[in-house]
Design a protein around this nucleic acid. Structure first.
Length: 512
RNA sequence: AGCCCAUUAGUCUAUAGGUUAGGACGUCAGAUUUUCAUUCUGGAAAGAGGGGUUCAAUUCCCCUAUGGGCUGCCA
């Protein structure tokens, strides 16, 4: 009978979860889904010093936002609980006793300062089989005469090659002489990660350990523990890391230290203790497209289709297709992927955009026109957040303060002042006398037949005067969506505020 | 400093020893759209360097370089 696949994501609550960890969680989820297995969420909170309140909540919020569901774990019922390590002390102690009895571990009474000194003297100092006897501070039995604090360290064997087969990296060989006798139990009566992790993974019947590559070097320590306990060693799958350009792996600490605007966190935080100044959510990324982006990172996508929904990702997922090398995040590709997902969800998103705009405008605005505006700006949105929505359509709601154009256009304007003013006057005439848009279209059509180049230029000027920029939706739509009075106002304002362009023109006075 | 891992265009990736080294994003140019955006067409752009093995190496081996990880009573 085939063994039931069980995987776990085991974050430590030391701050918010970034995309690197989200990717680890997601790949665990995908692996479980793909293989009809179970996905477990365990909280590895053995480090009390670095504990940050509400970290767990942030993780749960992120899972919810992304639609990642776990079968067992924190806040859920399950056979193998509790799923939070700080509540499992009794269990750890039981196995610790066994290890002490078998002399696989030992008490160490060193001063921290002494060890630091050794390390200063010799950079490559290791607290291992070679040194532990020299130091003379370590013993197999608890020494009741010494009142000093002690820790419990793992006995690493002398000069043994530990070999394991990583599902991504292949055969990895590490000699035990390169390993420290890791502390597995602290002086404050708590287990460290390595110990708690092995116990829990075994008791929770984890079959595949999928985690970041930074763990590869500590895998042999865990294997030694598995061997001492005579337990079956799970499959190891180490994922390559996502890097910041030239700044090392993405980490909470890095993000704190250097004020940078790189987006690495999925969602915004509801909690005071979790401070995030930028997130994918706030930047208008859709949950599914963030998963798609993460999925594609360092992934051999044999299928040529890159825009995938959750179902498709589950179908396509395979450990074999994960690459080995480090990954640099490409935000431009990410925004393209997001745009494609936006296009896929047109109906729902249009309504959301409409509501967001309505909220932003505050004033009463014609509903029909607002809906039309949403329709016509939709295909130029890369992100669904008010900042980006506003950037694409602000000009419908307020007159321009600045006019952005290039030197070439400036020259052409100066050379053709009279023509432009004439053109504006014609438009005023049309707007005042004829209210129907059909006639305006006809007028444009006539103009376009006369001289195309000239006409293009005139349209650019018209656009510039109305919206202050050369970029925007179709000019006819702009005219349709803004009230005629307002357009006239704006053109006049344009001429007034660009005296340098329109000096000494008779018509200028006429207009103003 | 030691150990572990990686290295194909700016970024992600294809090639299971034999290809004009393919694709995606980006970038540049052109076409369509009366202007903008979309869309379409096309261009530039890569095997880190040096040795082997082989009839043949991007692919296998070694060295160097570069990048990353680990060397915490952090996880």
């Amino acid at each position: 009978m085939k063994e039931k696949i069980r995987v776990r994501f085991a974050p430590s609550p030391t701050g918010p979860l970034h995309i690197g960890s989200l990717r680890t969680a997601f790949f665990n989820y995908l692996f479980a889904k793909k293989n009809n297995g179970k996905f477990i969420l365990r909280i590895d909170d053995t480090d009390k010093k670095r504990y940050i309140k509400k970290s767990i909540n942030y993780i749960l919020d992120t899972f919810k936002w992304c639609n990642i569901k776990y079968n067992e774990g924190y806040n859920k019922k399950g056979k193998y609980g509790p799923y939070i390590q700080s509540k499992r002390l009794k269990i750890y102690k039981k196995y610790l006793k066994y290890l002490i009895k078998k002399k696989f571990v030992y008490y160490a009474y060193d001063n921290k300062k002494d060890i630091l000194l050794y390390k200063k003297k010799n950079k490559n100092f290791l607290y291992n089989s070679i040194n532990r006897e020299k130091l003379n501070n370590s013993i197999n039995k608890k020494n009741k005469k010494i009142k000093k604090k002690f820790v419990i360290r793992l006995k690493t064997p002398k000069n043994k090659n530990i070999i394991f087969n990583d599902k991504i990296y292949g055969k990895i060989k590490i000699n035990t002489n390169e390993l420290d006798d890791k502390i597995i139990f602290r002086s404050n009566n708590t287990p460290t990660y390595h110990f708690a992790n092995v116990i829990d993974d075994h008791l929770m019947k984890i079959t595949h350990v999928i985690r970041g590559k930074e763990w590869i070097y500590s895998t042999p320590i865990q294997i030694i523990l598995y061997n001492y306990l005579k337990w079956k060693i799970p499959n190891f799958i180490h994922l390559p890391l996502i890097l910041n350009k030239k700044k090392g792996k993405i980490s909470k600490r890095f993000y704190k230290k250097k004020k940078n605007n790189l987006i690495i966190y999925p969602i915004k935080s509801k909690y005071k203790s979790i401070k995030i100044n930028n997130s994918f959510e706030e930047n208008g990324y859709l949950p599914e497209s963030l998963l798609n982006i993460i999925f594609l990172l360092g992934y051999k996508n044999i299928n040529k289709y890159e825009i995938l929904n959750l179902k498709q990702m589950i179908k396509l997922f395979s450990i074999k297709n994960i690459n080995k090398s480090n990954i640099y995040f490409n935000y431009k590709k990410a925004s393209w992927i997001n745009k494609k997902h936006i296009e896929k969800n047109k109906k729902i998103l249009k309504n959301i955009i409409y509501l967001k705009l309505k909220k932003k405008i505050k004033k009463k605005f014609n509903k029909k026109i607002l809906k039309k505006i949403v329709n016509s700006i939709f295909n130029r949105l890369y992100f669904i957040n008010i900042k980006n929505i506003w950037n694409v359509c602000y000009y419908f709601f307020k007159k321009p303060k600045k006019y952005i154009f290039n030197k070439k256009l400036k020259k052409t304007i100066i050379n053709n002042k009279k023509k432009i003013i004439k053109f504006f006057l014609k438009i005023f005439f049309l707007f005042k006398k004829i209210k129907k848009n059909i006639y305006i279209k006809k007028f444009f059509n006539k103009l376009s037949l006369k001289n195309k180049k000239n006409f293009f230029f005139k349209l650019k000027i018209l656009r510039l005067s109305i919206i202050g920029s050369l970029k925007g939706i179709e000019i006819i739509k702009i005219i349709n969506f803004i009230k005629k009075k307002e357009i006239i106002k704006r053109i006049k304002y344009f001429i007034k505020n660009n005296k340098l362009l329109f000096t000494n023109t008779k018509f200028r006075k006429n207009i103003i």
